[in-house]
Write a protein that binds this DNA or RNA. Structure first.
Lengths: 336, 336
DNA sequence: CTGTTAGCGCTTTCAG
DNA sequence: CTGAAAGCGCTAACAG
């Protein structure tokens, strides 16, 4: 049976108050008393109940982290960074996987509050929940930080990549490399995809060739294969592009595979740019040219921002913008 | 300010007990009273404090999940499975990332107990901690399930892949395919590597060619590149093998890349078998022949086993063994 | 059907 | 330096 502070007090012949003081070392205790108590603690193998402590302090030292999909190659790195920073400060994290479901996200937000978490980090929040104003309300009740996701005119704490600038850089690079026919690949409903699509259209402003392909679910293991199938069919059409700009690396991998399937060489016959710089992007051949999202930094900044919000009641809304960088590898090529 | 059950009771003009009963719906309450209470709850936007409830029930509805490295491609799938099963039953999970450090693992085990978790799942526990007898002691205090890892003569709950049989199948396949010179690649200190090494030696029993290469840290993002460097040098030696059996897919990917670097075609000039069947193994070209670990099933089984242990005080020690399967793809070839 | 009382395990005034 | 008492927010006998 687990021993409590009472057992220790009894055994040491002191009050529970004194035991508490020895543990927390926050009030003077006579040396001999301390020794008595410490020995009792050791004998009983006593460890304080953190939940009880939390009840009093109204602090759980727990943070909720909500991710759309933990099996996506993108998120584990972010989660790892968050965990590393928060653990240093004594926090544990609840991992919440929504499977990209809007309702699950809300469900988790509620449950996390019931569980008295000290703060919440939401990675890639669902646009619908963002627009509904739900999060603006909640962020007044509890420290809340978002990583990426829809943030236009939303009065919440954000750590975001300037995906727009990353997308512009990628598109300009393709154009500078001589590509006239660039196709765009996106998934369904996500602010990030919408944003890149706008960039695609703007940069291509006066171009005749425009081709937007929505491959549906864009953030799953299966996205690679699914993209491959769609693009394979697409590549057999008459007016084939010379380059693809993809909303993420999974899609880009799918395109690479599609090219291989029908005998197109990358980058000789086809240039491909991804987005995210997930691990796999440098494990495949050819190594993927892509836009780095600073996944680890994203997590570090979000964790620190949250910490600031927890420690300091009245911190202003913060917005940290990281600049993603184009990483030129081997899946793109200048053409004449 | 957050409202408590007392606020609700006052507003509704009843006792806190009644409010509790309405919430939990576990005792008869008069209809009108219920309505009064429910309206007060709504007005105050009241949500019960789960921590307080946990204090009474001595149940936190929280499970600790300890992983060596969340950024390893292997683990997110296991974690996802665990989360899915446990969430159905109302549990949340604390994600604990040890970075392969033995001390961190122990630190987490202690902290998790302080936080009154109802159970713990340890994925790939550190062999040292397993052998020290620490875990056998702890598993008497709290429901504990291990996924893989050292388990010889350890009296704890396990869900494991029969890695031995998987390794045997892989080795036999290579031999059956005509390979006489097979090299073995492993990382440092891990029961799983040791086990496969034994299989390697046994199956090769009377063979002249034996080559064991330890590439150090075997479970990190960097393992691929690191393996590549080592193997690249190795491949320039005189007596080159015709096939590699690798302890995991990351190493196998490294070997594939090494071959490419020095102009060896896979599988024409070199056959390669991995282990784990991580996502990336089917995203690369050539697709990797590997041994599937049933990562999701591993998680599902562990979660269910833990649940059984939590619900039922005196369940016997359980050991569930899954059989991994060789998946033949394109990185291996028969030779004459 | 409902309220009173005690208490989960710990911390924190407040006296002494 | 130490202890008694109150209480964090909630639930569970026990009466009524």
């Amino acid at each position: 049976m687990k021993s409590t502070i009472q057992d220790v007090a009894k055994k040491a012949g002191v009050s529970t108050t004194t035991v508490s003081r020895v543990m927390n070392n926050n009030y003077p205790v006579k040396k001999e008393t301390r020794i008595k108590v410490e020995s009792a603690i050791k004998k009983l193998n006593f460890r304080p109940n953190i939940l009880a402590r939390g009840l009093i302090h109204k602090k759980s030292n727990t943070i909720g982290v909500i991710v759309p999909s933990i099996t996506n190659l993108f998120f584990p790195t972010v989660v790892k960074a968050i965990e590393a920073i928060l653990r240093e400060q004594g926090y544990f994290i609840y991992l919440c996987n929504t499977d990209n479901k809007e309702d699950e996200e809300i469900g988790y937000i509620n449950s996390l509050q019931d569980r008295q978490v000290d703060g919440i980090i939401v990675i890639d929040p669902q646009t619908k929940n963002m627009k509904s104003g739900l999060y603006e309300k909640i962020s007044k009740e509890i420290p809340l930080v978002f990583i990426n996701g829809y943030n236009k005119d939303v009065n919440c704490n954000f750590v975001i990549n300037d995906e727009e600038s990353g997308a512009i850089e990628a598109m300009r690079y393709l154009i500078k490399s001589g590509h006239k026919k660039i196709a765009f690949i996106r998934g369904q409903k996500s602010y990030s995809y919408d944003l890149k699509e706008i960039v695609y259209k703007n940069v291509l402003n006066d171009s005749v060739y425009k081709k937007i392909i929505n491959i549906g679910e864009g953030n799953k293991d299966s996205t690679v294969d699914h993209t491959m199938e769609i693009i394979q069919r697409f590549l057999l059409t008459e007016n084939r592009p010379s380059a693809f700009f993809c909303c993420n690396d999974l899609m880009a991998l799918g395109v690479i595979n599609a090219c291989k399937k029908i005998g197109l060489d990358v980058p000789e016959d086809m240039s491909i740019i991804g987005f995210d710089n997930i691990i796999t992007s440098r494990l495949v051949e050819p190594k993927l040219t892509t836009v780095d999202q600073n996944m680890y930094d994203l997590g570090v900044n979000a964790a620190k921002m949250l910490l600031k919000n927890i420690e300091n009641e009245n911190v202003d809304i913060q917005r940290k913008i990281l600049t993603p960088q184009l990483i030129i590898r081997q899946s793109t090529k200048k053409i004449s």
